[in-house]
C-alpha cells in the first residue's frame, strides 16, 4: 500500500527534538524525505549543536527512511533560504513545511528586556515569515504545498509570555491572512496548538494548564499512558500534510494529547446598534446592561469551563 506522504519532501524547523523531532520521524514514516532543521540551541536560544538534528536523521535512516540534517537559523532570511535550498538540492522539490522551531524567554511585561522581546519575535514570527516566503514560490510552481505553523495556546494569553503570545498570535495572523491567497495554488496553511511534556513546558503557567485541562488532559497527574508525550502531536500534523487534507486551510487545530480539536474563529458574541451617533451615556447603559451581560467568562478568556 502506498504511504500517505510517498514522494513528498518536507522541512521541519526545530525538527531535532521535542515535538519537532517526533513530527520529523512521523513524516518520514509516512514516506516523506525530511530536511531536519535544528540549530541545536538551548531553550533560550543560546548555543549551537549539530547533535539534535543529526540524532533524528540517524533514527529516520535507521528505520529505512530518508532524511538530511540542516543547522541554519530560520530567524535569518539567509538561513531560511539555505534550509529551502537544502531540500531542493538534496531532494529536488518541496511539498511540506512545518515551522516548529522555537525558544522561550519568559518574563512579566514590566520587566521584559528588549533582547528577550526581539529574540522570541525573531524566531517564531519572522522565522515563520522567512521560511514561508522562501517556500511558497516553489510550492506555487508545483501547484502543491502544505504549511503548518506551530503556534500555541499562549496566543490566547499566557502569564509572563507577552513576547511569545504576540509571536504566536502573529503566526495565526499569517495563516488567516494567507490561506485564501494560497488556496488557488493548492497550498494549504494551518496553525496548530501543540503540546507535550518537553523542556519548553517545564515552567508552564496555570493559564496554559487550564486550557489543556479543558480536554481532559491533566497536566498534573502522572503520565503512565503517555497522553502528554510529544509523539501524540505527530500523526495529526502528518495528516494535515497529506493530499487528503486539501480542504483544511486557514484553521487553528489543537494537536496536543489524545484529542485532535478545531478552534473557532473569533466569534461575535453580541452586537449593539445605533443609527445615530453614539454618546457616552449610551455606552454606560448599553454596554453595562447588555453587551457583556451573561456571557460566560470562559468565552472572554477569563476563566475556563470544564467541558
Amino acid at each position: 500500500m502506498k504511504k500517505s506522504l510517498e514522494g513528498r519532501v518536507a522541512i521541519v524547523t526545530g525538527g531535532g527534538g521535542g515535538i519537532g523531532g517526533e513530527v520529523s520521524k512521523w513524516l518520514a514514516k509516512e514516506g516523506a524525505a525530511v530536511v531536519v532543521n535544528d540549530v541545536g540551541s538551548d531553550l533560550s536560544g543560546g548555543g549551537f549543536s549539530s547533535t539534535p538534528a543529526d540524532g533524528i536523521v540517524s533514527e529516520i535512516i535507521g528505520s529505512g527512511g530518508d532524511a538530511v540534517a540542516n543547522y541554519d537559523s530560520v530567524a535569518q532570511p539567509d538561513g531560511a533560504k539555505r534550509i529551502v535550498n537544502a531540500a531542493m538540492s538534496m531532494f529536488g522539490r518541496l511539498d511540506i513545511v512545518c515551522h516548529a522551531a522555537g525558544i522561550v524567554r519568559d518574563r512579566m511585561v514590566f520587566n521584559m528586556l528588549e533582547e528577550e522581546w526581539d529574540d522570541v519575535i525573531n524566531v517564531h514570527l519572522y522565522g515563520a515569515l522567512n521560511i514561508v516566503a522562501e517556500a511558497v514560490p516553489i510550492m506555487k510552481s508545483q501547484s502543491y504545498g502544505r504549511i503548518i505553523l506551530f503556534s500555541s495556546v499562549s496566543a490566547l494569553g499566557n502569564l509572563g509570555q507577552c513576547n511569545y503570545s504576540a509571536a504566536k498570535g502573529g503566526q495565526i495572523g499569517i495563516v488567516q491572512g494567507l490561506a485564501d491567497e494560497l488556496k488557488v495554488d493548492n497550498i494549504t496553511i494551518n496553525a496548530v496548538f501543540p503540546g507535550a511534556d518537553t523542556r519548553m513546558t517545564e515552567g508552564m503557567s496555570s493559564t496554559a494548564r487550564a486550557y489543556i485541562e479543558q480536554w481532559g488532559v491533566s497536566a498534573e497527574s502522572s503520565d503512565a499512558q503517555g497522553i502528554r508525550s510529544s509523539v501524540r502531536n505527530a500523526p495529526k500534523v502528518a495528516y494535515l500534510c497529506t493530499e487528503a487534507a486539501a480542504n483544511i486551510t486557514g484553521q487553528v487545530i489543537g494537536v496536543f494529547g489524545p484529542p485532535m480539536t478545531v478552534y473557532s474563529q473569533r466569534v461575535l458574541m453580541r452586537k449593539l446598534y445605533k443609527s445615530n451617533a453614539w454618546q457616552f451615556d449610551d455606552l454606560d447603559f448599553a454596554i453595562g446592561s447588555s453587551l457583556n451581560r451573561n456571557i460566560p467568562e470562559s468565552r472572554l478568556g477569563g476563566k475556563y469551563e470544564q467541558r
Binding site: 473569533r266 466569534v267 446598534y273 445605533k274
Partner: peptide, 12 residues
C-alpha cells in the same frame, strides 16, 4: 453604528 464584543477562539 455598531459596538460588538468578540470571544477568544475556543475549541469547537
Amino acid at each position: 453604528q455598531e459596538v460588538s464584543l468578540y470571544s477568544v477562539p475556543a475549541i469547537e
